[in-house]
Amino acid sequence: MTANGINVAAALSVVAYIVLAPFVGGLLAGIDRRISARMQGRFGPPLLQPFYDVLKLLEKEPVTVNRGQDFYVACCLIFMMVTGALFFAGMSLLLVIFTLTTASVFLVVAAYSSNSPYAQVGAERELLQMMAYEPMVLIAAVGLYLVSGRSFGISDIIGSPAVGVVYLPGIFIGFLFILTIKLRKSPFDLSMSHHAHQELVKGLTTEFSGKTLAILEISHWYENVFLLGFVFLFFANGTPLMAVVGVAVCLIAYFLEVFIDNVNARMKWQFALNSSWIVALVFGATNMMVVYFASVSGWGVQ
């Protein structure tokens, strides 16, 4: 493929992400609610319920605590879209991770800006969650860098003949572990949850209503699609077969998270922080070191 061809493909996938991700994300959320209901012995809402919810929120009376709040939440959405766009354009994985962090920070600032005690506690818990998952996300990026011929470029990672998960099983397990935090599932849905929980668990969104809440929901749809894309990276090696396997694993991973969500009670934030760092250390760092020494000593990957 020529350089020009790659650019066109990248542009197409970015446009596809921007346009389709909300639909895919919303549908995944609908499937999630349906499966959760079935696991609890209930019938559950219609598949399109998340879309009804967001459309409803858009038609509510606009009420905000301050003007800044809407701006911050809008920034959260925009940075989330940029994160996914950079990802699907095949740019640097590090850049993508830091853009994602920026989006999360905007969300925290939006919650802090309201001065409501519930929102503040929610924002603090969100920050703790970020501290919990960041190390593992970075280790995952470094791991993929090591096995893809020393490149952080996502198109290089996808194109490299090495299937990441073969060399990075520990890092993959660690990433699935923090995916529970990122997807806001029990036992780590500390600051916000997508189910009908209340009080502190909804803390982050306490002061958001109507359109603001709808925007936040849409940015989560974008985020979820991006996160599953990250899972996909562990399987991609540029062949169609592995692409199919990758998408299948993404769906299985999502189902697994829904299952974990339903069989777990919520834990304290201390547990979230300790366990995810321990997992990052035991599975992530060990795996990373093994791959690193293997590659410098000349056997294994490249």
């Binding site: 209930r42 559950g44 809402p45 209340q198 909804k202 209503s209």
Partner: peptide, 17 residues
């Protein structure tokens, strides 16, 4: 199972209809 009708029990008046 009122969630069949999309009904959710929120704890927050700002989210409620």
């Amino acid at each position: 199972d009122v969630e069949r009708f999309g009904i959710i029990n929120t704890g927050n008046p700002k989210h409620a209809d």
